[in-house]
């Protein structure tokens, strides 16, 4: 029985976390609600999942849930890897821009030092 309580508490925390993310689309919230309702039902009445499992040709309800979780994890991994690699290429763009800018600044500073242009700029500002 303790395990049910633990699962329900974790589920409640997860649900709370998802719902305070206000930027989520209504569609996401509806899907999340359905999943939460199903999860609560299966935690309280695990035997409810057996008929569905039988209908789909999987041994027991617990097996079905394990498979669903595996599929979900694969989707999540692919999704986050894609996001991760997009971030990587964004980061490259930033690093590149910075390298080019840094060089420009160095060159400008060198020219200023050589010609004396802008020598008083710091003083004027202060």
């Amino acid at each position: 029985m303790i395990i049910r309580a633990v699962f329900l508490v974790l589920l409640a925390l997860l649900t709370f976390y998802v719902f305070i993310q206000r930027r989520r689309l209504p569609f996401n919230l509806i899907v999340m609600s359905l999943i939460v309702v199903a999860a609560v039902a299966f935690i309280l009445r695990p035997e409810m999942s057996d008929p569905i499992a039988n209908y789909l040709g999987v041994g027991t309800g617990a097996d079905l849930i394990t498979y669903l979780i595996q599929v979900g994890l694969i989707f999540a991994t692919v999704h986050y890897y894609t996001k991760f690699s997009t971030l990587q290429s964004e980061m490259t763009k930033v690093v590149r821009e910075l390298a080019l800018l840094q060089h420009k600044v160095e060159r400008l500073t060198e020219t200023e030092e050589q010609t004396g242009v802008g020598r008083d700029r710091g003083r004027a500002a202060s």
């Binding site: 980061m91 490259t92 690093v95 590149r96 910075l98 390298a99 080019l100 840094q102 060089h103």
Partner: peptide, 25 residues
């Protein structure tokens, strides 16, 4: 050489493209 510096390691392809962007400029 003129040296451009990536503040963090981005890979050889990224470094090449940075150099190419620079020389095209």
């Amino acid at each position: 050489a003129i040296v451009l510096r990536h503040v963090t390691n981005r890979g050889q392809g990224a470094a090449l493209q940075t150099g190419i962007d620079f020389v095209l400029g």
